[in-house]
């Protein structure tokens, strides 16, 4: 998906180490870290991180980003809990190779 929307292999790989990666500009890195905190434990969105968000984004952009992250979490948990099979392929959600 990321390749389809124009991100490089380097940027996709950098998602595993956002905090120390130079693949993203400061604003995007902050949003990615905010997404991590909001996803892992929303209580973990501390004042320092939120101040960084305020530095890079307007209030309405923070609402936008929070909605994207919230929506992604909604879809992820919905499709995972219900084991929704992958679209456009005949591969079932819990195919043998994923259960190892």
């Amino acid at each position: 998906m990321a390749r389809q929307i124009g991100f490089t292999e380097q940027e996709i790989a950098a998602l595993d180490r956002v905090a120390e990666s130079v693949a993203f500009d400061a604003a995007l890195r902050t949003a990615l870290l905010y997404a991590e905190a909001m996803t892992r434990d929303a209580h973990g969105v501390d004042e320092k991180l939120f101040a960084e968000m305020k530095r890079h984004y307007s209030d309405s952009e923070i609402v936008e980003i929070s909605c994207v992250v919230g929506l992604a979490n909604y879809w992820n948990r919905f499709t995972t809990a219900l084991r929704v099979d992958l679209s456009g392929s005949n591969e079932p959600y819990d195919s043998p190779k994923t259960d190892t």
Partner: peptide
């Protein structure tokens, strides 16, 4: 936004 969506999906290990 797509990258954020992808990042969250990877964090959640979402296969869908």
């Amino acid at each position: 936004k797509e990258l954020l969506f992808l990042h969250v999906s990877r964090l959640n290990a979402c296969r869908y």
